[in-house]
């Protein structure tokens, strides 16, 4: 709490409170407004994280055959759980797999989202209302349900593509074959994410004042040149943001591969890092290893997305701190 008093000195010295008459007093109301958020944050986020960090440093020591009360005791393990996680070939391959998956999902999803957003924004494209609604619709379908739907469409007996190819005498590879299952899962993520990102980018495009294009049009710029030279450079911050959100979502992929597993033998229980955490915690009952892996995954996500927030924070609050 010492930091609070320090803050008080600097806050009263530097910042004007909104009400001039209250300059000298510490307002009580904002703390009351913050109580529910802070209490829930502590209970649902801070304590679970700290407890998991604690568990990641613990392990169970088994005495004798491990039978009877007192034969299993929890002891400090130092960093050995982290050593196990980081040297576990399952973990390393799940990380590499998910990075590869991200390299497929993010460029394809954002590329399509940008293309559709530019088309929606173009003066020469028709049927925009219908397309915008339909392309956005998958956002309302949760990953579990969309995986279920695509999972059936991937089955050769159901797939319309296999059916169509057979009519012309081609045998299509099965989407859930070992080499292709990553793309099958990536397709589900792209399908679910394109519309939302399209709307974010389209909204950014609409905020550009149109007189910027008028001048370019008079100078004889084509729609394509306007998109490439004016529109895309202006919405780069939105593209960065959507990429980082895409990265966060990619790292925590869980629902899609878990739902597809009953339909194929080519998705292992440690396909993604989060699936491996689930397996360690609930199938192997090794909550210590699961805790260490959780911490590693959370830190990796945090580090990856940190740069993004610095970017957004500075932009978003410029008006408030004027």
């Amino acid at each position: 709490m010492t930091s609070v008093t320090n803050d008080l000195v600097s806050a009263t010295a530097q910042k004007d409170p909104p009400s001039g008459s209250r300059r000298a007093r510490i307002p009580r109301a904002p703390y009351v407004f913050m109580v529910p958020a802070v209490a829930l944050f502590v209970f649902s986020i801070a304590i679970p994280i700290l407890y998991t960090a604690y568990l990641s440093l613990r392990t169970v020591k088994v005495e004798g055959l491990g039978l009877g009360p007192g034969a299993r005791t929890e002891v400090w393990a130092g960093l050995s759980n982290y050593g196990r996680t980081l040297s576990d070939p399952d973990f390393l391959s799940s990380v590499l797999r998910v990075l590869g998956y991200g390299l497929v999902v993010i460029p394809v999803m954002l590329g399509l989202a940008l293309l559709f957003a530019l088309l929606l924004d173009s003066v020469r494209v028709r049927a925009t209302r219908f397309s915008r609604l339909v392309i956005f619709m998958p956002y309302a379908v949760p990953a579990v349900i969309s995986s279920l739907l695509w999972g059936f469409l991937y089955l050769p007996a159901v797939s319309p593509f296999t059916h169509a190819a057979e009519q012309v005498g081609i045998t299509l590879p099965q989407p859930m074959a070992p080499g292709l299952v990553l793309f099958a899962i990536a397709n589900i993520a792209v399908w679910g994410g394109v519309g939302f990102n399209m709307i974010v980018l389209y909204t950014a495009l609409k905020a550009i004042p149109s007189d910027l294009y008028e001048a370019a049009r008079i100078d004889g710029c084509s729609e394509l040149q306007i998109a490439w030279r004016i529109k895309i450079p202006i919405i780069v911050p939105s593209l960065i943001m959507t990429s980082v959100f895409g990265m966060i979502t990619t790292l925590q992929v869980f629902a899609e591969p878990t739902v597809l597993r009953p339909l194929t033998n080519n998705i292992s229980t440690s396909w993604s890092p989060l699936m491996m955490i689930y397996r360690d915690a609930f199938t192997r009952n090794d909550i210590y290893a699961a805790s260490a892996t959780s911490v590693v995954l959370a830190v990796a996500t945090f580090v990856l997305s940190f740069g993004f927030l610095r970017l957004v924070q500075n932009r978003a609050f410029a008006q408030e701190n004027r």
Partner: peptide
């Protein structure tokens, strides 16, 4: 700043820690 740090730790990663607690 503490709340913002929470934005960076997405909800799904927290599920197993929340379960443990």
């Amino acid at each position: 700043n503490i709340l913002l740090a929470g934005v960076l730790v997405p909800g799904v990663i927290l599920a197993v820690p929340q379960y443990l607690l």
